[in-house]
Amino acid sequence: MRRKARTVAAVRLLLVAIAACLLSLAATHARAQTPSVEYAVKATYLYKFAPFVEWPAGAFEPSDPLVICVVGNDPVADLVDEAVKGQAALGHPIEVMHPGASSPDARCHILYVALRGAAAASLLERVRGKPVLTVTDAANEPRATGIVNFVVQDNRVRFEIDLRAAAENHLVISSKLLNLASRVSPKP
């Protein structure tokens, strides 16, 4: 049963990836990326950040799953559940939660903020100092940014990294990830 489920998940991921690839190829040619693909990519990136981030000791119990919390509603938030299905990160299964904006789950390891304005800022303020990788989207709210902030450049999904915010949340970001970031602030 499990194997069958995993196989199904793998096939699904494969399809998504192929689709992404084909789309990205197409985008390269077309020099344009359709919004839906952009959201799918962002949703996929959420769990892909996990291997490049070092949480402080105690943030994970060996049996704990990696918890991705999605707060708010946007096209990305809707796709996250789909994207992480069957995936694992750092040996942990991935669990997606959709807590309310007022009470994000304390177990969140990655928090995707799909809120705008003051709500986003207050949510970000609330998890400051906790070992949570906060991810925001500049397309949603350019002014309230977390540790990682999606941007789109040359029709490609890129991200900026705020090292100070990461340090406040006791997270260490892999230099490999920093190398890929379109902007790292402050300069390391």
Binding site: A20, S24, Y45, P51, F52, F159, K176, L177, N179, L180
Partner: peptide, 11 residues
């Protein structure tokens, strides 16, 4: 090792 991030994020 170095290419892992680029691969992960399709760069």
């Amino acid at each position: 090792s170095t290419v892992s991030a680029a691969l992960a994020f399709d760069d």
